[in-house]
Amino acid sequence: MIRRRQRRKPSLNKAALVELINHRTGLAKRDAQDLVETVFSIIKEGLSEGERVKISGFGAFVVNHKQARRGRNPHTGAPMQIGPHRVLSFRPSQTLKELVNSGRN
């Protein structure tokens, strides 16, 4: 746990992403911001329609359909019905998996 905290690097957020795009493309920050948001909205809309979104060299966002099942309230232990629902999962590409492990071992 302690090791984990020491390893933690500052996180990248949308603002940093905007900065980077501004540098790389020369687009104004305001435009870059709008475009980054739009990219994520497009992905979100596709996923909402149950579509699979695949980014080559990065990974795929996949919508899984879960059937209804009987579960338990983990707090009280009371049985309850969990209705059918959809969950999102991300499958990293081989390239991304390798990249994350590069420079180690």
């Binding site: 996180s11 992403l17 493309t25 990219v39 992905i43 990065f58 994350v100």
Partner: peptide, 27 residues
């Protein structure tokens, strides 16, 4: 358009390679 989309995912991948966390609000 192409370079915006590429930059987004390359930047996320690069941050992950360094062990950093990437938070995209509302996503």
């Amino acid at each position: 358009a192409e370079s915006v989309v590429n930059a987004v995912f390359e930047a996320i991948a690069a941050a992950l390679a360094e062990g950093a966390r990437v938070e995209i609000r509302s996503f």
